[in-house]
Design a binder for these strands. Structure first.
Length: 466
RNA sequence: UCCCCAGUAGCUCAGUUGGUUAGAGCGGUGGACUGUUAAUCCAUGUGUCGUUGGUUCGAAUCCAACCUGGGGAGCCA
């Protein structure tokens, strides 16, 4: 007798006639008065549950088996047999049903075997993990994460763990969460009456990182090809279906690369990941196609079998101005594109992910490499239909004089960028990289419309339960 | 943070031009039936009507503030 997963049984990896034990949770129980009960058991190893056939001759049949409800945990030992019923190839003819834990009050068990709203499931984040939809999302999420590591590993990239706590208050990417051990009720003050951060844990102000990019650049300028993959924190008061206060980001950084190199890298990576999901998680994807987004699979197949459309910002503005569509916000060169513009480009004009390149420098970050035209920088965004910006990247300004000039224009203090400038002072090289919002990728691949449903425990403004 | 919408049973919702005992489906429970599989059929409803305050003889219903959630916008990944 051996322990096996539901996945192995259903996939036929266990020979018929073998005695095995599966352990998991009850999805549904159906009784036949002919003297049998059918128990669907899931253990998370795959989408489908396995069916255990339980005869009323078992000693605990009427005392326990007939009281099993959705959510009960158990270990079922029995023989793997070809199913006599329709709907599954294999099932387990039970010889022992050991109840590990009953649901103490089935009437109030939050995960009834019925449709729940996503909002409701979110309020029960610890139990939604047992539902079809959340289980499927998390298996796909894992598949994507593994594919990302595999993709980079196969191409000679090194995974760099950039710090989560940063004392650099100049990353310039939005609001920061403060990290401090000071007593909020009794904050030490300087003689000038300001908070005395010298007495804080790090001896200076510290925050949670908003990006691993600047640190990743230092390792790209040494190991040549690196990437980060870890949590990122933004204290922005963003209340949307595509923002989180804590999310995961993938940030490759590549020495000797230019904008087109990383645009193609991003495209290759996205296709690699989508292919992995389509082949490895066909069961979960079939569920998403059935219940979440009917077009999800053909949409992904279209993405992997076509080249991304590359387009300069300048050309995009022209397209938007001449498309004849009425926008709420006017389009003009030099302003950032609105959501409605990005949606039009990705969803209507192209109908697939689109790579927008070479944005006006005034609407982009200080570290992006200036183009020869003096007006634009080598930046690119990849816009996905239904999601919007999924990737943002750029070539980094590696020329010290240009970099300092840009800092001066923006009134920024070079002192704050000491180690970052050193990379330009000592053996500088052209390099480029991008950031991919991991949860946005999971959303896009699964068809889930709210980003809070593709991370186990979402953190957002006014929301940090569990 | 801004705009719009919502908050009624374990869940999804109906209801209310202010007025006696607040409803349905699903779930659960009991029964019938069946190698069943979102099973089916019958029975079964004790609910601070989001919170606080106000108007009123009377508020789940009207008003205000707040809280929470959803959609959209901004910020971005």
């Amino acid at each position: 007798m051996s322990f096996v997963t539901v996945s192995d049984v259903l996939a036929g990896k266990v020979s018929v006639g073998t005695t095995v034990t599966v352990r998991g949770w009850v999805r549904t129980r159906r009784d036949s008065k002919a003297g049998i009960s059918f128990i669907n058991i899931h253990d998370g190893s795959c989408f489908d549950p396995v069916q255990a056939v339980v005869e009323n001759s078992l000693p605990n049949y009427s005392s326990e088996v007939l009281h099993l409800t959705t959510g009960c945990s158990l270990a079922v030992t029995g023989t793997v047999v070809e199913s006599a019923g329709k709907g599954q190839a294999f099932e387990i003819q039970a010889t022992t049903v050991e109840v590990l834990g009953f649901v103490e009050d089935p009437d109030t068990y939050p995960m009834a075997p019925k449709r729940h709203s996503m909002e409701y499931l979110r309020e029960h984040a610890h139990l939604r993990a047992r539902t079809n939809v959340t289980g499927a999302v998390m298996r796909v999420r894992n598949c994507l994460a593994q594919a990302i590591h595999r993709f980079f590993h196969e191409r000679g990239y090194f995974w760099v763990a950039t710090p989560i706590i940063t004392a650099s208050d100049a990353e310039g990417a939005g609001e920061l969460f403060r990290v401090s051990t000071l007593d909020l009720l009794n904050v030490p003050k300087t003689e000038q009456g300001e908070v005395d951060f010298k007495q804080d844990f790090f001896g200076k102000e510290a925050f949670l990182t908003v990006s691993g990019q600047l640190n990743a650049e230092t390792y790209a300028c040494a190991l040549s090809k690196v990437y980060t993959f870890g949590p990122t924190f933004r204290a922005e008061n963003s209340n949307t279906s595509r923002h989180l206060a804590e999310f995961w980001m993938v940030e490759p950084e590549v020495a000797f690369a230019d904008l087109n190199d990383i645009a193609h890298l991003a495209e290759d990576m996205l296709k690699y990941c989508i292919n992995a999901v389509l082949t490895e998680r066909a069961d979960d994807m079939a569920f998403f196609a059935q219940r979440i987004d009917p077009t999800v699979i053909e949409r992904l197949q279209h993405v992997v079998s076509n080249d991304f459309v590359h387009m300069d910002y300048t050309d995009a503005v022209e397209i938007l101005q001449n498309c004849g569509k009425k926008f709420e916000y006017p389009v003009s060169w030099g302003t950032d594109l609105q959501s409605e513009h990005e949606r039009y480009l990705a969803e209507e004009h192209v109908g697939a992910p689109v790579v927008l390149k070479n944005y006006p420098r005034d609407i982009k970050a200080f570290y992006m490499r200036q183009n020869d035209d003096g007006k634009t920088v080598a930046a690119m965004d990849i816009l996905a239909p239904g999601i919007g910006e999924i990737v943002g990247g750029s070539a980094r300004e590696e020329r010290l004089d240009k970099f300092d000039q840009r800092l001066a224009e923006l009134g920024m203090d070079p002192e704050d960028y000491g180690w970052y400038r050193d990379l330009r002072r000592y053996g500088t090289v052209p390099h480029a990289g991008f950031g991919l919002g991991f949860e946005r990728l999971v959303s896009y691949v699964t068809g889930m419309t709210n980003i809070r449903d593709v991370i186990p425990f979402p953190r957002a403004p006014k929301s940090a339960d569990f």
